[in-house]
Design a protein around this nucleic acid. Structure first.
Lengths: 151, 151
DNA sequence: ATATCAAAGGTCAGTAATAGTCAAAGTGTA
DNA sequence: TACACTTTGACTATTACTGACCTTTGATAT
């Protein structure tokens, strides 16, 4: 098993013990596993992505940290399934269909649905060129969906 | 938690007890937390800015003081005022200050605040080049705020 | 009044402590 | 051999802390 897998399972262990959340120091982790700090970022982006059901937050500077939170996915399979159906790009019509579907299944409430639709609307994304808009839309959409699962 | 966070929560405590206003001595505070006096200014400018919803007054010389007051505004007014003070560009720190202010004034609930922060986070906007990110952030932010008013 | 002094607080640029990005180089496996 | 996955490190960005130097205010002496 490679270093990245070791780091990932170490993080998983911490998360387990702490009840769903792991607060890490990138520098410490890198030292513990004798790797460069950026490998921690690699592990996080390949194994703790929204598609995997995790929310990642961080802060730089003195006292900085990386916090990884596992999202409660069991009762909300539809949302995670949607996150995984969305690739690198997402057009507005498809997004609307997803939201409508999830709303109909009571995966979230109307207010949340409206906020999500507003955040990925053409108006909100108007500073972005139309060709690029669907890429950004996909990213915001996935982050928002996973975020609704956090408690 | 770093010294700056400790100082900030100490100030918040005082403000709480005193019903919305805290009158401090910079020198005293610095001694209490074993830091240089200028760190107090750092804490105030990073955590008690007008964007955060505070007014800061001070006086030098003998009997000098720093007074921090929480400003009160009706939720709707605060949201509209915020929308109007955001120009074509908005950095994440300033946005976070605004959100924290509106949250503290009960302009919206925690869940909404988190959705907004997620929608404009660097992670959600990662497909956009950093130079362009603040432009898009401003647009999404304003649309979301206006959208919370439509109920 | 005026000059002077002591006691606050203010500014700003520099240093330290963290984390993030990206592309090149390495590794293993179908 | 291709190809995907992993590892590395140079460069960048952000946040916290420090200290030298500056400004304002009130009191006191002349």
């Amino acid at each position: 098993m490679g270093t990245s897998d070791l780091i990932a399972s170490f993080i998983l262990d911490i998360m387990e013990d702490a009840g769903g959340t792991a607060e890490l120091s990138r520098q410490n982790l890198a030292e513990r596993f004798s790797c460069v700090p950026s490998q921690i970022n690699y592990v996080i982006s390949t194994r703790f992505s929204p598609e995997h059901g995790y929310i990642v937050e961080s802060r730089r500077g003195g006292g900085g940290f990386i916090r990884i939170t596992r999202v409660q996915a069991s009762p909300q399979r539809l949302i995670m399934h949607t996150v995984n159906s969305v690739g690198a790009s997402l057009d507005l019509r498809t997004a609307a269909a997803f939201v409508s579907n999830m709303l109909g299944s009571d995966a979230f409430d109307l207010k949340t649905a409206k906020l999500i639709m507003t955040a990925i609307s053409d108006r909100a994304l108007s500073p972005i060129s139309p060709e690029h808009r669907d890429i950004v839309r996909a990213s915001i959409f996935k982050q928002l969906l996973v975020s609704t699962l956090a408690e």
